[in-house]
Design a protein around this nucleic acid. Structure first.
Length: 820
RNA sequence: GCCGGGAUGGUGGAAUUGGUAGACACACGGGACUUAAAAUCCCGAGGACUUAACUGUCCGUGCGGGUUCGACUCCCGCUCCCGGUACCA
């Protein structure tokens, strides 16, 4: 009789053994012949508390890493800390301790929790982004980007979050609100640092095609975010001026239907018109106060005012009024649009409201409503368009655009929705931007030999401006160029800067003469399997793709060494729900992983999160389900009692053969589950079936004992990726000498999967009418004869004529009949 | 509006990608063990009707059509749900 399954003791024992044996370490030895495999989960923000979302994310990745190790790969599976960020500052204010203290304490706490879960990380590769030896390279990179003109400072309308007291990138504004604190963002005109992600828009879009193993959803979201649209830029004249009014349009075929122009409130022409028009100035003022949140409400009334200026149509020379409209965005295209109310719903609504002309220039056979009643937005054939009459919309776009091009009044144009990445933040707990402001020399990048610009870690934020701005020792510095007294930049980087390149730094985390080591990149990059939440689809995952290309293009590695993309495969796991809603502190429906670990052990927690739902779907938490997972482990534990034992009774070769069939079918199925889409829930179900087969089997002879042992060993090994401690303990009790989680993954014995007799389902007219036992290589005629001899089948064959028989080998026999 | 994903028992979910729908588990019901309970073990179960009988029939993967010997799977047309995104010109 074996002892009870004692999760805590077993888990402590094996964690110690693994650590001693170094089984989780990646080998950088060039003579290591194993193929390398890089498995990575999105690194956590060290909030101090492990939540179920973490557990799920990291157990998924760990299962992949462990499986690959058992398949003989040299696996890099690192972990680290996305350690800069606002929560540390908020906690600092609350506890009156510097954010660094809080952060380092949290890291220590979370490291313990991760180890307790038995996650197979290579802790030798651990990094924390708040350490100068990490962010110095980010600063170095930034100076390179400034040199290349890819980073720049400009004054712009930016998103400002008052509660967080900082600006935000467009990607960090979710439905008009701050992604962190959920409060509405404001527009502010400020000088800020940007990185030219727009220069890479085309590459980021095109390389999406290389990401064949990414979820369609994420690819689609990135494609939308980049928002490429092709059309034309058209220059209208401005009456009584040498200036032009440029617009972007995707419908140059409707050019002859333009009846007015609309410009954004921030457009220079609008400002100029307002100079001696107080009413208009008031309207512009009003527009500037509309927060993005309000503007998001589709119901917002379209408002406008005439500027008094007139534009000159580039083809007809007609003069058309220029209006200011609150729906035109300064930040997209040129901040001005040509309005064709007959063929655009928005323009129509506006024209209708202000009594502007509507001129139809497109029609087709389905066009049966007057454009005085509603806009006709479909493609069609041009009318009322003088020399362009009769052209189809598609042709007309090309013809009109090239006409404009010849006249110097327009050209084909590709427009992106993507805008440059705003990377400066008015926060303390981040990587300092390596810039010095000198009265004489202007903005000077900090020279390489003076990097890193170290963030003083002992400052105490108060909630207002960053304490850096008042820290004289930090701010006052000599200009690196002229040596005169100058001031340091006190803004810090967006924390997405750190997370944009950590996956590359992991390949050579201690490299101190370069950002990354090209050789290490060659060995490990790109990440073979990345696992994380879908909420980063257009944040982290877009920035990281961009940054990878930047690193390549400043020469840190070549395409051959590091690849053009950082992540080959992406798995986006679903959320952990309780009572149908996301588990979160604010909802008060959290389950603390530590509680589960204390009660059942880490293995049960791991097993449940992997079994309860497919990885990409949301997982509904269930206490009963956790019990069930634990029950399964106890059942397997009990099977150990039967190992090596012979029971009284008559031996049956057929039963033993059936067990071996089950064993090897299971190995095949589970290997398949790992190789095709990581359906761990199905893999675990398969292991449960194998366990059920073993529990109903009693060995009555030596062959039976051997087969049972074979099954137990295979089961122990295959449990390794999911419940590693349990797997090792069971394997050890079975007398296996290797540590189970590094032992070779079991292989299928095809001979065991061959059956002499198989069951065929028999259908008549596609309806299942019975089953027959036949030799494995049965031919159609024999199978039919056997089926006809079966009473429950033959009764369906009376009074009918058999017209066709279909045999699907190993599966079924379908008899097609017709009334006689 | 647009883009993406989805709809299978009481529940979470399977189905070798066109071949026995409901694996595996949870919850439930019945039984065994126990003084009792917990734990554990065994049995049952898609629905309707039917039978002395787990006997047999029919229906059944959101709805309506189609292709096929055969459809959860493929095609056409809908409905609803979830996620993303939007005055993008």
């Amino acid at each position: 009789m074996s002892d009870h399954y004692e999760a805590q003791a077993i888990e402590n024992k094996w964690q110690k053994k693994w650590n001693e044996a170094g089984v989780d370490l990646a080998s950088d030895d060039p003579s290591d012949a194993r193929e390398s495999y890089y498995c990575l989960e999105m690194f956590p923000y060290p909030s101090g508390d492990l939540h179920m979302g973490h557990v799920r994310n990291y157990c998924l990745g760990d299962a992949v890493a462990r499986y690959k190790r058992m398949q003989g790969f040299n696996v890099l599976h690192p972990i680290g800390w996305d350690a800069f960020g606002l929560p540390a500052e908020n906690a600092a204010i609350k506890h009156k301790r510097p954010p660094a203290e809080w952060t380092y304490a949290n890291i220590d706490q979370m490291r313990v929790q991760f180890k307790r879960l038995g996650l197979s990380y290579d802790w030798d590769h651990e990094i924390a982004t708040c350490k100068p030896e990490y962010y110095r390279w980010e600063q170095w990179m930034f100076t390179k980007l400034v040199e290349k003109g890819l980073a720049y400072r400009k004054e712009a309308d930016v998103n400002w979050c008052e509660p967080c007291h900082t600006v935000l990138a467009n990607e960090q504004v979710v439905e008009g609100a701050c992604w962190r604190c959920d409060m509405p963002v404001e527009r502010k005109n400020l000088a800020q640092w940007f990185i030219k992600i727009t220069d890479y828009a085309e590459a980021l879009l095109n390389d999406l095609d290389k990401l064949s193993d990414w979820p369609e959803k994420v690819i689609g979201m990135q494609r939308n975010w980049i928002g490429r649209s092709t059309g034309a830029e058209v220059s209208f004249g401005v009456e009584g001026s040498d200036e032009t009014l440029d617009v972007f349009t995707t419908r140059s075929d409707t050019l002859m239907g333009v009846t007015y122009m609309a410009v954004a409130a921030g457009h220079p022409l609008a400002k100029k018109a307002a100079e001696n028009h107080p009413g208009l100035a008031l309207f512009l003022e009003e527009c500037s106060h509309i927060s993005t949140k309000e503007a998001d409400v589709a119901l917002m009334e379209k408002k406008g005012m005439a500027t008094g200026f007139h534009a000159v149509h580039p083809i007809t020379g007609e003069t058309i009024p220029i209006w200011v409209a609150n729906f035109v965005l300064m930040s997209y295209g040129t901040g001005a649009v040509m309005s064709v109310p007959a063929h655009d719903e928005r323009d129509f609504e506006f024209a209708h409201k202000y009594g502007l002309d509507i001129k139809q220039v497109i029609t087709n056979e389905t066009c049966d409503v007057s454009v005085d009643v509603e806009a006709f937005v479909e493609m069609g054939v041009l009318v009322n368009s003088s020399q362009f009459d009769g052209l189809a919309s598609d042709e007309a776009k090309a013809v009109i655009t090239s006409y404009l091009d010849r006249e110097g009044k327009g050209r084909e144009q590709v427009q992106y929705r993507l805008r440059d990445w705003l990377v400066s933040r008015q926060r303390y707990w981040g990587a300092p931007i390596p810039i010095i402001h000198c009265d004489d020399c202007g903005m000077v990048t900090v020279p390489e030999d003076q990097l890193p610009v170290i963030l003083p870690e002992h400052l105490q934020p108060t909630g207002g401006a960053s304490p850096l701005t008042e820290h004289e020792a930090f701010v006052n510095v000599d200009c690196p160029t002229c040596g005169k007294a100058a001031k340091r930049e006190t803004d810090t980087f967006d924390t997405f800067m750190e997370s944009s390149w950590y996956m590359n730094r992991y390949t050579s985390p201690r490299c101190d003469d370069a950002m990354v080591d090209a050789k290490a990149m060659q060995k490990w990059s790109p990440v073979d399997q990345y696992v994380g939440g879908v909420e980063h689809a257009v944040l982290h995952l877009l920035y990281a793709r961009f940054y990878h290309k930047l690193m390549r293009d400043v020469g840190l590695f070549t395409s051959e060494e590091g690849g053009d993309e950082p992540f080959k495969n992406l798995l986006t796991q679903g959320m952990v729900l309780k009572d149908g809603i996301k588990m979160s502190k604010s909802k008060g429906n959290t389950v603390n992983p530590n509680t589960i670990i204390e009660k059942y052990g880490a293995d049960t927690a791991r097993l449940f999160t992997l079994f309860a739902a497919p990885p990409e779907k949301d997982l509904e938490w269930s206490d009963a389900g956790v019990e069930g997972a634990n029950r399964f482990l106890k059942r397997v534990w009990k099977l150990l009692d039967k190992a090596g034992k012979q029971f009284p009774g008559e031996a049956s070769a057929a039963t033993t053969k059936k067990l071996r069939f089950d064993i090897h079918t299971t190995i095949s199925r589970i290997t398949h589950a790992f190789e095709h889409g990581f359906s761990f829930n199905v893999a675990i179900a398969g292991l449960m079936e194998l366990s059920n087969s073993l529990s109903t089997f009693d060995a009555h002879d030596e062959e039976g004992v051997v087969a049972f042992d074979e099954g137990m060993q295979a089961l122990a090994k295959m449990l390794g990726p999911f419940v590693p401690h349990f797997s090792c303990e069971v394997a050890e009790k079975l007398g296996m000498t290797d540590i189970a989680v590094v032992a070779a993954w079991p292989t299928v014995d095809e001979a065991a999967r061959v059956q002499d007799e198989i069951t065929l389902a028999v259908q008549v007219q596609g309806k299942r009418r019975g089953e027959i036992l036949v030799p494995k290589d049965v031919d159609q005629d024999t199978a039919l004869a056997i089926a006809q001899a079966n009473i429950s089948i033959s009764k369906w064959l009376d009074d009918v004529q058999i017209v066709k028989v279909i045999l699907v080998p190993g599966r079924l026999l379908n008899i097609v009949v017709r009334p006689a």
